[in-house]
Write a protein that binds this DNA or RNA. Structure first.
Lengths: 246, 246
DNA sequence: CGGCCTTGTTAATATATGTAAATGCCGCAT
DNA sequence: ATGCGGCATTTACATATATTAACAAGGCCG
């Protein structure tokens, strides 16, 4: 099976040596059961993770016991990078479905920066893109209605699943509970339910046990009024590599 | 005057060569008047910026014309990194006060990755730390009350101003309007005003034209129930550099 | 088969926050 | 001094969303 490297090669194609090294990282994969933690907030940071299969979530604990899911990770995503700058993890990584991950120790990252600058830079750009995604999400959550948030999330999800080859004809698995969806979008489960139901009634989507089908794409996009434009930067590498003038 | 490099040397001390190069970047600084854009959303990405003096903001436009301020930048911050992965800027950079910045073209970043891996890594870690900050902010906005958001913002701001040497004895400049504060915290100006007033009445802080003084630190922290722990990782560099085992 | 647990659904009520509009304050330019 | 514009402050009112509770549907396990 082809490892899901689409997030890595998005910015720069891997050389033979780089591909070799990347494949080497995948040797010891680990299986995590749905709902189990991969790394808890506050634990020492020993490295990062690569999600080979399944869905995972990054979440933060609030003092009152609730938590906020900050990001849903799909196969091919790198997990835990933000905490690399901290002594103890600032986020909890958790398997949202049964998942398989492999680990990537601190030292390997240092080595990559020293020996494979092209790869380091691809990774760097990939994490910057994550930062953009985070900024966009912050802008929904802060300033839009429940319906917009939900539809924007579904559109984004579909987009990313498609990039990972996990959605066909607007149809994809949707294995998370409404409770988790509430923690992700910052609203109560009851209101998630109301909103989901009324979205269903618009006819734009249809839900079946653990799956979602998008029926009316344009309609969805109209509902997600604040869905951000996509300035995908597949040329980013070239811009940084060449000596373009400022 | 000493350039504000505290955000750069936080993770790794600069070698002579690196310090030399860093100083070279600062040659042509530009002055931006309060309220003026540094770079607008949608413009081509020619590089990043270094904020030498003043406050700046990163914001996203929503389709309905409102905007969400995603981050307030203080002297020493690097601006525009997230958009590096995009062809066109995904964020608007704007001077919140009169500010002075200098530019840092794409090519210089590429060169840095190839020639100064230590510096590249320090920068990388710094942007990961920003990502943590973004995640934390997302968790406030999504799941906490107006009072918590406001106090958490003030605490974080004070913390960062202190790191930049811009706050003494809990006293610091506060040059942004309540309108901007609302766009930052995702609430209406009226509610900002209400909340600010009632925070004032608790006696934890006192406001005077354009300045804020924190009177009761512990009280503030109690109000900001969700203020996250600080897992500052000044040892991050060492962890990545040495061959620590996973 | 029957119970238990998770998940989804719906209703009734409470409340935090938004919206609209008016007022006052202060600095600044004429 | 006068008026004007940006900003802070209030008031009154509207509403989206939270909270609590109860119940239904399905999966798992004895």
């Amino acid at each position: 099976m082809q490892p899901p490297f689409h997030r890595l090669v998005e910015f720069v194609p891997l050389s033979a040596e780089e591909a070799e090294m990347a494949r080497g990282w995948l040797v010891d994969s680990r299986r995590i059961a749905r709902g189990k933690p991969i790394r808890q907030e506050g634990e020492p940071v020993k490295g990062v993770f690569f999600l080979l299969d399944g869905w995972a979530g990054s979440s933060l604990l609030l003092r009152d016991g609730r938590r906020q899911i900050v990001k849903v990770h799909l196969p091919g995503d790198m997990l835990g990078f933000p905490s690399l700058a901290l002594s103890h993890a600032g986020e909890t990584l958790e398997a949202l479905t049964d998942a398989t991950i492999c680990s990537f120790p601190n030292a390997a990252i240092g080595r990559m920066f020293r020996e494979l600058p092209r790869l380091a830079m691809a990774l760097f750009l990939s994490t910057q893109k994550e930062r953009v995604a985070l900024m966009q999400k912050l802008s929904w959550v802060g300033a839009t209605s429940a319906m917009e948030r939900l539809t924007a999330f579904l559109l984004d999800l579909h987009h990313r699943l498609q990039a990972a080859g996990l959605a066909q004809a607007g149809c994809f698995d949707f294995p998370i509970t409404q409770q988790q969806l509430g923690e992700l979008l910052g609203m109560s489960t009851v209101h998630i339910n109301r909103t989901f139901k009324s979205l269903d009634e618009t006819g734009c989507i249809s839900r079946g046990r653990g799956r979602i089908e998008v029926l009316d794409f344009a309609g969805l996009q109209r509902l997600a009024a604040s869905f951000p434009p996509d300035f995908a930067g597949h040329d980013a590498w070239a811009r940084l590599d060449n000596s373009s003038r400022f």
